[in-house]
Nucleic acid binder design. Sequence first.
DNA 1: TATTTACTGAACAGAACTGTACAGTAAATA
DNA 2: TATTTACTGTACAGTTCTGTTCAGTAAATA
Lengths: 187, 187
Amino acid sequence: MKSTEVKKNKGISKNQWLAKALELLELEGFEAVKIEKLAKLLGISRSGFYWHFKNRQDLLQHLLDFWSQEYTSILIDDLEIKKLTADERLLTVMKMIRNKKLTKYDLAMNAWAKADPRVHEAVNKVIKMRLDFSREIFAELGFDGDELEMRARLFTCYQTWEDVTFSDNDEKQNLKLQRLRHRMFIK
Amino acid sequence: MKSTEVKKNKGISKNQWLAKALELLELEGFEAVKIEKLAKLLGISRSGFYWHFKNRQDLLQHLLDFWSQEYTSILIDDLEIKKLTADERLLTVMKMIRNKKLTKYDLAMNAWAKADPRVHEAVNKVIKMRLDFSREIFAELGFDGDELEMRARLFTCYQTWEDVTFSDNDEKQNLKLQRLRHRMFIK
DNA sequence: TATTTACTGAACAGAACTGTACAGTAAATA
DNA sequence: TATTTACTGTACAGTTCTGTTCAGTAAATA
């Protein structure tokens, strides 16, 4: 086989392990991501796990890497968003975070970060990128200095934790409040 | 011994187990609250644990009850705070949450809530009480309807998660931003 | 003085989970 | 056809933690 050829059928089962691990991570936190539990949920034996991953730590590292890359770049690299004015961008970001559930792993990651300094570092990087992204918007809106910093922090913090804090499913009410929040932030 | 008499020396060691458990809960989350680990940290054997608690679940229930009672009532039952105007109360509450570290168990409790519906219920109750407390302030400040609701949620969410989100220790900067946040919320 | 309360450590059984070894299989590739 | 890749299940050894039992102790109480 030529080394340039793409192998077929590669990583099918590996992705199943990862997908199920992400599911457990979201629903029950990183401590619940156990190899035995994953195998049971997938309906297979544990042994195949060690074909794909060195050990449990290796799997967790994959989850951390995935989150670090995926959940910083989605908003920041979006070319459509970059075209918008700061005003429109603020509202669009608020909608996207909610609709695409961009913060669904945040609680698990922050809890995990308490137990593992490498995770802590990764979480800090993500927060820093989100803050920088927000600062840019508020700078374009005409804010500067401490006023800019205060708004960037308030916005970033709320958008990160809204979903965890309020288990409210009144879509109409949420849209109304979103509009009011947007208005409060731009003036 | 008369049944009305207060027993001396009661609960000394029980409180040591609880205090150490709370310490671990704050630093590493509820999954890290293991009986063996606690005993090792206390420098004693595990067997005494079962004198005080039925089992691990019983200990965790105590931690949950403690948090539920302690961390709702501190602000709400404070008579000094009740005397203040809504304006002053808002700033005082912001300062107290920071100074007394009133949200130090929130991350652990929310992560735990994902795995246990009874914890989820307790966490929801605490959030509801905090929201009601905030709503009262913003109502007194002259807000109503959706505008009041939006502000109460934004305020509650930020105050709950500020400490988790920003590992910033610049005290001067924080005080400046606090004042600006206060100004933004009251007008 | 006798008893109860509040503990102590040592020892054991068992559950849950990890990691390794190994033999086998089915499909794709050389 | 032979080999490699990507898996499968069974079995075993080892760790960590739980919960129970038991024998003992030191202090407070009746």
